[in-house]
Design a protein around this nucleic acid. Structure first.
Lengths: 231, 231
DNA sequence: ACCTGAACACCGTTCAAGT
DNA sequence: ACCTGAACACCGTTCAAGT
């Protein structure tokens, strides 16, 4: 892209975008768009400025630094988590749907998902999601400590899976080419690795995740049943 | 740190380090040291040069770019995964030990661990680890597809847990302060979140992980038993 | 109140040159 | 073969200035 010429008073609108006043929301949305398009490393305050038709330094009027912009992007992603509200379905079904939709973010926003997995959720939106999830665990009859543990176990499984799925699709910046998914025998794989490789190709990762969810939810259901009628 | 004066012919050895000849191993070790000390974002080719008493550009004689340096750091971490060899213990015990030691890397190298979780393992060392793990699953009598699924489920749980544990310890660069771990009621938490918060403090994350491992391994053992004597 | 533009202290990487 | 040093095209952020 050639450097844009700009006349002093009137700047060109980048990317056929209306010249609306800047706002935290508009900035966060542009940042997510840029990350989705070019990758996390490509997000810079300067490019974000260009995307919005504004000098980079104008952004500092709405965010104190780049870290807070990333937090705002995280919050956009958190809002994509679909946790059905209490009463809309049985607790187990709501939890399962929430985990599926969380891991789904990895597929829709592969470049941005690592933010969710690696940075702490700490926004209003995140607490709302937490609350609905924990409400569902409580509904199963689990005491708080048990809810806490199940909450972590299932959530960590989903975020670990999202990250692994992204890596398997070679969407990590700078990654070396994957041997596992190459045409067979481009490199000699160790025997047990070779045996499982066909089941871990990118197009079969959904099955693997559903299996893991089955394992977790079978155990969760049994745990809840056992706790409800104590022998 | 003030800029070091340097006389043309003789550079000062950085960090009281012997002036050994550069090698990929020495570079990777210095990179990991630097990441452990100052964080992943603080690793630059220039600082890595200073750490080794060398101009940054000398590194390009051993690695084509920074991405390959990070791959080498990953490989150092992979070698810290302790997968007991076949015969040394029952298969389930070996697997459990491997997952514990993998997640342990998150605690020993919190700044570097995200590399492991987000980048694809693709080195010789990684394949050796894979092979030993998959050998253990096969030993349980699982067919390849089942091994593949259990491999992903347990591995993803461990890496998701490692990342969450790092975030809980506020070791993520740029993170906003955590409300969950603050002195009680600095901010009003939603009721179910407030109820579980005491069980998710940094000092209780080991218990939560052991619970998740129990869930996984109980189910794995049952699955293996069921597959061995088909009804 | 909101945005610009120059400046500072950094980056990764290329390239020609030195030994 | 191995390393240097200048250069290029970038960064995040500060600051004084414009409207």
């Amino acid at each position: 892209m050639p450097t844009q010429r700009r006349t002093p008073g009137r700047r060109p609108n980048a990317a056929d975008e209306e010249r609306l006043p800047l706002s935290p929301d508009r900035i966060a949305e542009a940042a997510l768009r840029l990350i989705d398009r070019d990758g996390l490393d490509a997000l810079s305050m300067r490019k974000l400025g260009v995307e919005l038709g504004v000098e980079a330094m104008a952004l500092y009027h709405h965010f104190p630094n780049k870290g807070r912009v990333l937090d705002a992007v995280m919050d956009l992603l958190v809002r994509e988590i679909d946790v059905p509200p209490p009463g809309s379905a049985p607790a187990l079904a709501r939890l399962r749907q929430a985990l599926r939709s969380y891991r789904g973010i990895a597929l829709r926003h592969p470049h941005a998902f690592p933010l969710l997995a690696a940075r702490r959720f700490n926004s209003e939106g995140a607490f709302a999601v937490y609350e609905r999830l924990l409400q569902a665990f409580a509904e199963l009859g689990l005491p708080p400590q048990r809810s806490a543990w199940w909450f972590r176990a299932t959530g960590n499984l989903a975020s670990g899976t999202g990250l692994a799925d992204i890596a398997s699709r070679e969407l990590v910046p700078d990654a070396t080419p994957l041997t596992l998914q190459r045409e067979p025998a481009s490199v000699a794989l160790p025997p047990h690795v070779a045996a499982v490789a066909p089941y871990l190709t990118a197009d079969r990762l959904d099955e693997a995740f559903e299996f893991a969810l089955d394992v977790m939810f079978d155990a969760l259901e049994r745990d809840a049943r056992r706790l409800r009628r104590p022998n």
